[in-house]
């Protein structure tokens, strides 16, 4: 099986072809210009990860709180992480860097505030 991946590391945007075995293991990567591209293509075909950023409502504040995951989480978990965020209750004040939800979905990543709210 083959998968096409567009590299996101730089503006060249190499179109890479990844050959996969029947069990889904990466056999080869072609079309990349540099090693960073090959590494990215492998990651995308095995365990793609993304940072998630969002806003959540805060009691008593007209401005919502912007948050992020402290490190990338598996892409497949994005909808579940968003659902978790819907159940979080936060109250004033909040400082940037404050952990809003620790170890979200056992990923090892925390949901962290990215701004101050007073």
């Amino acid at each position: 099986m083959e998968r096409m991946i567009t590299c996101i590391n730089c503006p060249v945007g190499c179109r890479m072809t990844v050959a996969l075995s029947e069990s889904g293991e990466v056999v080869s990567v072609t079309g990349n210009t540099c090693p960073r591209g090959a590494a990215y293509a492998r990651q995308e075909c095995t365990l793609p990860e993304r940072m998630i950023t969002a806003v959540i409502p805060v009691e008593g504040s007209p401005v919502p709180l912007s948050v992020k995951t402290s490190k990338p989480v598996p892409k497949s978990l994005i909808p579940e992480v968003m659902r978790e965020l819907g159940h979080v209750h936060v109250s004033l004040p909040v400082s940037a860097g404050q952990v809003i939800l620790g170890n979200v979905l056992e990923t090892g990543s925390d949901i962290v505030a990215t701004r101050n709210l007073r």
Binding site: M51, T53, S66, K68, A96, T114, R115, N116
Partner: peptide, 10 residues
């Protein structure tokens, strides 16, 4: 490092 917009501004 990769920051969000509010973090960069802060």
């Amino acid at each position: 490092e990769e920051l969000t917009g509010p973090e960069y501004a802060q």
